[in-house]
Design a protein around this nucleic acid. Structure first.
Lengths: 89, 89
DNA sequence: AATAATTATAGCACTTATGCTATAATTATT
DNA sequence: AATAATTATAGCATAAGTGCTATAATTATT
């Protein structure tokens, strides 16, 4: 029987930032008049991926975000126009 | 013999955006007075990862980028203060 | 020039992002 | 209320991000 070996590598999942981004993206998508399905089609991303991002289930890559910005035709400064909580020392 | 089956799924790797980000990050890191190694240590990211990002070899996740922004103590608007080439229709 | 410091590469293991497909749940429309 | 549209969830396969470790290459320092 192979014991389930617990890795001690700690991967980063910045839940706070990911949630903020999710909310912000949804706001912008709606503002720009896209449904998830339209955004998926026009961007070439899958619908499931769009939904996963907006529900903060995953931690998307920069390429994915860049594609969203291009499709929505908004500058990155808009898509990232929110504050991260500062690092606690 | 198992033939190597080529998948037709097309994953996104936005080379142009990734390169722009790489250059921009490096500029900011140096401006803020960090070596890659310092940035790695203080952020908890691996040194190899920092290098891979700055040489545009990989497509980092948002969490990674958020951690970098926090560690460098710069707002996202700073880290994303560059232009993506617009989508060609 | 020698040495030190910094940055870049490489390989492996593990975890996770993503596409795809299908279905459920929710919300809007008639 | 029924129906349609939209959004959310789920499982699987595959590609890729990340940590770790080591080493090479480059750049700065003495």
């Amino acid at each position: 029987m192979k014991q389930q070996q617990q890795s001690d590598r700690k991967l980063i999942f910045d839940e706070e930032g990911i949630k903020s981004f999710a909310i912000h993206l949804k706001k912008i998508r709606i503002r720009e008049g896209y449904s998830q399905s339209q955004l998926a089609f026009e961007s070439g991303l899958s619908l499931s991926q769009i939904a996963r991002i907006e529900t903060a289930r995953i931690n998307p890559t920069l390429s994915t975000v860049f594609v969203l910005a291009r499709t929505l035709n908004v500058p990155l400064s808009d898509l990232f126009n929110f504050q991260l909580s500062p690092k606690e020392k």
